[in-house]
Deep mutational scan, measured.
Amino acid sequence: TGEEYIAVGDFTAQQVGDLTFKKGEILLVIEKKPDGWWIAKDAKGNEGLVPRTYLEPYS
């Protein structure tokens, strides 16, 4: 389980392990790392690192 967040901007993977997403996408945050990069999963089940500055809590 995780917390749902909504993307407030588009993000394109910079390196292997990053997750590309579009503004408005709902992501499930699995782990919040202290460096500001969180592990998240998208609706298709893809998992990767995302920058927390692009996310806001979804309710």
Rank of each mutant, 00 (worst) to 15 (best):
K33R: 14
L19H: 02
G45L: 05
G2E: 10
D42N: 15
A40Q: 00
D35Y: 05
D10I: 02
D18C: 09
N46P: 01
E4R: 15
A7D: 00
D42C: 03
Y58C: 09
V29Q: 01
K44H: 13
V29G: 01
V29E: 00
A13W: 04
T1R: 05
I30Y: 08
A7T: 10
E56W: 09
V50G: 01
K32N: 03
R52L: 10
W37Y: 10
E31R: 06
D10V: 02
V8Q: 07
E4A: 15
F11H: 07
E3L: 11
G24C: 06
D18G: 14
I26V: 10
F21E: 00
P51N: 15
K22L: 08
V8R: 13
G9Q: 14
V8C: 08
G17Q: 06
K32D: 03
T1S: 13
V50C: 07
L28I: 12
A13I: 03
D35M: 04
L55W: 01
A43V: 12
W37G: 05
K22S: 10
S59Y: 15
E25C: 06
K41S: 08
W37P: 03
A13Q: 06
I6A: 04
E31S: 12
V8L: 15
E47S: 10
Q14E: 10
K44Y: 13
Y54K: 14
T12F: 12
E56T: 10
A13F: 03
S59M: 11
L55I: 11
I26Y: 05
K33W: 09
K23V: 08
K23E: 08
V16P: 14
T53G: 11
Y58L: 13
Y58I: 11
P57R: 07
I6S: 03
L49D: 03
E3F: 08
I26K: 08
Y5T: 01
G36Q: 05
L19T: 01
S59F: 12
Y5M: 05
I39C: 07
D10K: 03
Y5L: 02
V16T: 14
K41Q: 11
G24E: 03
K32F: 09
K44S: 13
E4V: 13
E31I: 13
L28T: 13
V16A: 12
T20V: 04
P51D: 13
K23Y: 08
D10P: 05
L28F: 10
A43K: 12
T12S: 14
R52G: 12
G17L: 04
E25W: 09
W37S: 07
G36K: 04
E56V: 11
A13V: 03
N46H: 09
V8I: 15
D35N: 10
K33T: 10
G24S: 04
E25P: 00
Y5F: 11
G17W: 05
T20G: 13
L49G: 07
Y58A: 11
N46E: 12
L19R: 01
L55D: 01
L55T: 01
P57T: 07
A40G: 04
V29F: 02
I39G: 03
G45S: 05
L55C: 02
L49P: 05
P57C: 06
K32G: 02
Q14G: 10
G9N: 14
Q14A: 12
P51M: 09
N46R: 12
S59D: 14
V29T: 02
K41G: 03
K23M: 08
G9F: 14
G9Y: 15
G48M: 02
S59W: 12
Y58P: 05
G48L: 02
G24Q: 03
I6H: 04
Q14C: 14
L49A: 09
G45D: 06
F11K: 03
G2R: 07
K44N: 12
I26L: 09
L55G: 00
T53D: 15
L55S: 00
T20Y: 04
D35C: 06
E47T: 14
K23R: 12
G9M: 15
K22E: 07
V16R: 13
K22Q: 11
V50H: 00
F11I: 04
E4Y: 15
W38Y: 06
K32W: 04
I26A: 03
Y58N: 08
K22V: 10
I6Y: 06
R52K: 12
L27K: 00
L49F: 13
Y5G: 01
K41R: 15
F21W: 02
P34D: 14
T1Q: 14
T12G: 06
T1D: 14
K32M: 08
K32V: 06
Q14R: 15
K22Y: 10
L49W: 11
R52E: 14
V29I: 15
D42G: 03
V8G: 04
F11M: 04
A7F: 02
Y5Q: 02
L28P: 00
A43Q: 13
N46M: 11
A13E: 05
V29D: 00
K33Q: 10
R52P: 15
P34V: 14
P57I: 09
A40L: 03
A13P: 07
E3D: 08
D18K: 13
E31H: 10
E31D: 12
V29L: 05
D10T: 06
E25K: 02
Q15E: 10
D10Y: 04
W38M: 04
A7K: 00
A7N: 00
V50N: 00
Y58E: 05
L55A: 01
K23P: 02
A7Y: 02
A43S: 15
T53H: 14
W38S: 01
G2T: 10
Y54M: 14
G2N: 09
L27I: 07
E47D: 06
G45K: 04
S59R: 12
I30W: 04
D35K: 03
A7I: 02
G48R: 01
P51R: 07
K33F: 11
N46W: 05
I6R: 09
V16I: 12
P51L: 13
L27A: 01
F21D: 00
L19G: 01
L49V: 13
T53M: 11
W38T: 01
Y58G: 06
L49I: 11
G45H: 05
I30F: 11
I30T: 08
D42T: 06
L28Y: 11
K22T: 10
G45N: 07
E25R: 02
G9R: 13
I39P: 03
I26D: 01
D35L: 05
D35T: 08
W38A: 02
A7M: 03
P57K: 11
W38D: 02
N46A: 11
G9A: 15
T12P: 06
